[in-house]
Design a protein around this nucleic acid. Sequence first.
DNA 1: CCCACCCTTCGGGCCAGGCCGAAGCCTTCG
DNA 2: CGAAGGCTTCGGCCTGGCCCGAAGGGTGGG
Lengths: 208, 208
Amino acid sequence: MRSFGDGSRVRLLCLLMDGRAFTGKELASFAALAPSTASEHLSHLRDAGLVRAQKTGRSTYYTLSSPDVATVLEAMTPLLPPPLPTTPIAMARCCYDHLAGDLGVKLAQALVHQGLLALDAGLLEKAAGFDAGLRRLGLALPPMRPALRSCLDWTARRPHIAGGLGAAVLAQAFAHGWVTRTKTPRLLQITPAGARGFADHYGVVMSP
Amino acid sequence: MRSFGDGSRVRLLCLLMDGRAFTGKELASFAALAPSTASEHLSHLRDAGLVRAQKTGRSTYYTLSSPDVATVLEAMTPLLPPPLPTTPIAMARCCYDHLAGDLGVKLAQALVHQGLLALDAGLLEKAAGFDAGLRRLGLALPPMRPALRSCLDWTARRPHIAGGLGAAVLAQAFAHGWVTRTKTPRLLQITPAGARGFADHYGVVMSP
DNA sequence: CCCACCCTTCGGGCCAGGCCGAAGCCTTCG
DNA sequence: CGAAGGCTTCGGCCTGGCCCGAAGGGTGGG
C-alpha cells in the first residue's frame, strides 16, 4: 500500500507500464534516482508483490507482476490533477500492454464504427458484431483475461481499448511491424507500413 | 497521490466507501485517530480532491468526491495480501454504492442465470437479455454512469455488480426495505422482507 | 586473470510529515 | 448569555523512510 504513496515508486511502476522488462540501471536513470536507491525501491516493490524480478547474467530485469498493478495505476491517473508531464507528441503510446494516445483513441472509435464495440456513458462495451469483427480483423484474444476493459487516456481523456482485446491489437501491430518502440519508454513510432495497415485494416488515418 | 500511501488516509477513505456521509468525529473514532489528526488528513484529502466536505451546523460531513476514488480503492484491494480484517459475518455489505459480500455475489450469479449478464474470464458483462431484464426487475439505471462494472469482492474473491446497475440494485433494496444499515459502516442487515424480496425477485436464497 | 559492469547492502544524513494535546472559533442548546 | 460539543489551527515531538556514496559480491568480456 505504501508503494502507491511514494512518488519515486509510482514513477518506477509507471515506467514498467511500458510492458517490457527493464534493468535496474535503466529504471534508475529514467526515474532520476541513484542505482542504490532504485534498488531499494525495487526490492520493496518485489516484496510487496507488485513487480517481478528475473536475474539474467549480471542484470536484473523487472516487470509488473500482474495486470492488476497496471489497473491501479490507470485508476489513479484521472485523479492526479496534472496528468504528469507527457511528451508533446504522444500520438502513439503503449499503456502496459495495449495502445493508448491518439492512435489508441482512434482505434477505439474505429471499432465502434465497425460495430465491434459500443460507447455507453463514455465507456467502451462489446457490441453485437464483436465476435464476427474479431475474425474479420484476424485478432486472437489471449485466454484467461477479461476480453475488454475500457481505459481512459491520460492526455486525451477519452477511452481506448484495454483488456484482452487491447493486448491482441497491440500484439498484432507489433507482429506486422506497424509500430516500433522508441528509446523513450512507452512511446511508439508508427511505421510507414503501419500508416497503411491501420488505414486498410481499421480505417484509421493519423493526422501528421 | 501521497493520499494512497498512508495507512490512516486509506482507512478514512475505506470508511467512506460506505457511500454515506460521515462527520469528522465519527471518522476519527472509526479510524482510531485523534480528532485533530483526522481533521488534518481530511483537509489534505479535500485539497487533493478525493473527498468532499459539507458543513452542516456544527458538524462537517465528508463523502467521497467521485466514484473514481472508489475505483482506485477497489483496484488496490486485490493487491493487499491480507484483505484487511473484515467482520466475520459479512453476508451483506455495501461497497461504496453497490452491494457486496455474499449477497452481492449471489445477486450477480442470479442475474447471470436470468440472462442479463454473462461471465467472461471471471468478469461480468452484459448479455443479450440485459435491457429486457432491467424492465422485468423494475430497475432504473442512473444516467451519466457506466451501466456495468465488475467488482471483485474483498472476501469471497468473486465478482459482484458495480457501476450503474449495482447502484440501481442497492437503491431498489433500500427503497423496498430489503436491507438496512447497521452501526458498523458498510455492513448491511437483510430484513425479513428482504429475504422474501430477494427470493421472489431474483431467486436468491441466503443460507442462514 | 583482471577489469568493467551491474546489483545489492550498509551507514549515515536529513527532512517530511504523522501524531497528539492545548487553545481558539463557531454553532447549537438550555 | 453561558455551557457544551465539534472542527480547526498551532506547537512540538519523534519516527519512518528517502536518498546518497562507498564498499562488497557476482557475472561476463577481453
